[in-house]
Amino acid sequence: SIKDSVKLCNFNCSQSQGITVQAIDDSRVLLIALKIDAGSFQEFRCDKDLVLGLDLESLSKILKQGNNEEYLTLMAEDSPDNLMAVFEDKKKDRISEFSLKLMDIDSDVLTIDDMETDCTITLPAYEFAKIAKDMKTLSESLKIVVTKDSVKFNAEGQIGTGSVILKPHTDMDKPEESVKIELNSPVALTFGAKYLNDIVKATSLSSTVTIKLTDKSPALFEYKLPSGYLRYYLAPKFDD
């Protein structure tokens, strides 16, 4: 989900936190924060806190070697040079092993304070992905306007304009189909369509996405994982 936004990432491993990643794209506009709790894994053991510097394109090549039904075990020693990946099928009569070279990655870490939030929107992840993809064909910017009654996605481009308006509703049978708006104050923010299209690559990870918006501040897009999260912080566009 994130390899088109960032190439090199430090994966921080610890017994209490599981695996955490913070990475910023080269343009310094999009920040990715990933947390995979230890409980996400069938087995998780980390005797000593470790930082695994990974090239995501390389990691992706290794992970594609396995089949979906196979068990994956990732292993690194103390002060490792390599990450080991072992795929086993359920009957354990096919085992494939790979070793991925680790890298020293010099990344600066940003401190994200708890933000005041003007509004929080939760909507189906596929719905947000469709809007982001469709609107990018019209304009390089997407404006999100939230009032208590609706959230409006608006694009103005060379060929014309377009907007999608969603109204809050609750689907009792399929809660993940609901659209929720929690509003402290109305907000109108503009974002780069390119970055929104990077963010929606996480769509398959979660049925819903939660968007937190605050006037003249970065937006938070959160995809909840079964035990953890993938968060994107995106700086908005506005006049200085």
């Binding site: 910023i24 343009s27 506009v29 970065p218 912080y233 566009k237």
Partner: peptide
């Protein structure tokens, strides 16, 4: 046209 902001403007470096 509005100017793309960067995150450094909002978040501190550690």
């Amino acid at each position: 046209t509005q100017k793309q902001q960067t995150l450094a403007r909002f978040f501190g470096s550690q």
